[in-house]
């Protein structure tokens, strides 16, 4: 009869042990929306430089809710995200601390940081148009706006509109043209799709090689990743397309950012700011390009050889925070037209 209570108490003890906290006090704790294998080179470099141990938890969704629920007790020091809308959610919920760092302010262009100094961008990704090398007329595409022309009917591939990258692109178009025009553009674009929106950006480049479509909207670094992939198959997809940076004659190519901020209730704010400052150091800014083909936010850091070979491009300099403000409106359009 006493066998069960004993085993239960052992179970209790066991559970108590495994639930015990595992994080040291002096460590730097990061909540990240960026995949571990993309950040770990930064972490390793930082740990080596500063001697601070860095702990990470990665999740694609819900970290802001977790941080909010943890409140003052949250162990998080630094937040890293890959999209401005996700980043500004933290600011909206008042989960970020104001950071006083002249280094950050002086290095990062004003349109790529929060006016209240709560968040900062560290790298840029351009939303570009990939076109098939097999067809020649596609080189007439100059602007995003051109994609809504009737002549591309059945020739464009895209991932679902509800994905953050497309939502952000539509938000930039909302900013440039207003609701009615943006909606009309999105609708005509959708009518030009060669297939139901699906897959990620990589899959769109693949679709071009498969002959499903000739035009795809992708983030620029996917092209770089495919071009230098260790898989022959991936390289052949990239070999088959050219990249167009749209809107060079007017407002510039839409960009999104990866960025971060310091958690409001961080117990280690000094270290957290130091880490953000590390992310705009020469070394880290170069890492963004070499790991993931992303553009550094600092304009004085030389581009990697590969990025430089794609040529300089003009970027849309709308305040990046505006993208986040317009994103819900963009999502509504996406819902209505069914992208």
């Amino acid at each position: 009869m006493y066998k069960i209570p004993l085993s239960m108490s052992l179970l209790g003890l066991f559970l108590g042990l495994i639930i015990l906290p595992t994080v040291g006090l002096a460590d730097l704790n990061i909540y990240s929306h960026r995949q571990p294998f993309l950040i770990s080179p930064f972490i390793e470099a930082y740990e080596k430089e500063s001697g601070t141990k860095v702990n990470i938890v990665y999740a694609s969704k819900g970290l802001a809710q977790r941080l909010q629920a943890e409140g003052e007790l949250s162990p998080a020091d630094v937040i890293l995200t890959v999209d401005i809308a996700r980043l500004s959610v933290y600011a909206d919920k008042d989960l970020l601390a104001v950071v006083q760092s002249s280094l950050l302010e002086n290095s990062i262009p004003p349109h790529l940081r929060d006016k209240d100094n709560k968040w900062f961008a560290f790298s840029k990704r351009a939303r570009v148009i990939a076109v098939s090398k097999q067809s020649s007329d596609v080189n007439n595409i100059k602007d995003y706006e051109d994609l809504s022309n009737k002549e591309w009917e059945g020739r464009i591939c895209s991932r679902p509109g509800s994905h953050v990258y497309n939502r952000a692109l539509l938000a930039s178009i909302l900013h440039a043209h207003g609701y009615e025009k943006a909606k009309k553009w999105a609708k005509s674009l959708r009518d030009n799709f060669a297939r139901r929106p699906q897959g990620n950006d990589r899959a769109q480049v693949k679709a071009i090689q498969e002959g499903i479509c000739d035009i795809a909207i992708i983030n620029h670094y996917y092209y770089g990743k495919l071009k230098f992939s260790e898989k022959v198959e991936h390289r052949s997809w990239a070999d088959n397309v050219d990249i167009i940076f749209p809107n060079q004659g007017n407002r510039g190519t839409h960009i999104n950012i990866s960025g971060g901020g310091v958690a409001k209730y961080s117990k280690n704010k000094k270290e957290a700011v130091k880490f953000l400052e590390f992310l705009i150091s020469d070394k880290a800014q170069e890492l963004y390009a070499s790991i993931n083909f992303e553009y550094p936010v600092r304009t004085d850091v030389p581009l990697s050889e590969e990025l430089a070979s794609w040529g300089k491009f003009k970027e849309d300099k709308m305040p990046i925070g505006k993208i986040a403000v317009l994103a819900p409106e963009a999502q509504k359009i996406i819902d209505v037209i069914g992208w």
């Binding site: 906290p21 595992t22 994080v23 704790n29 995949q35 571990p36 294998f37 702990n55 990470i56 938890v57 990665y58 999740a59 694609s60 969704k61 819900g62 970290l63 977790r66 162990p75 897959g199 990620n200 990589r202 899959a203």
Partner: peptide
């Protein structure tokens, strides 16, 4: 997958979360 992903402590992977960081990018 999704609950372990969101609720895990620092530096903690399960097989599913470890898989996910790659699978997410196809």
């Amino acid at each position: 997958l999704p609950m372990a992903l969101l609720l895990r402590p620092f530096n903690f992977e399960t097989l599913a979360t470890y898989l996910y960081q790659f699978a997410k990018d196809e």
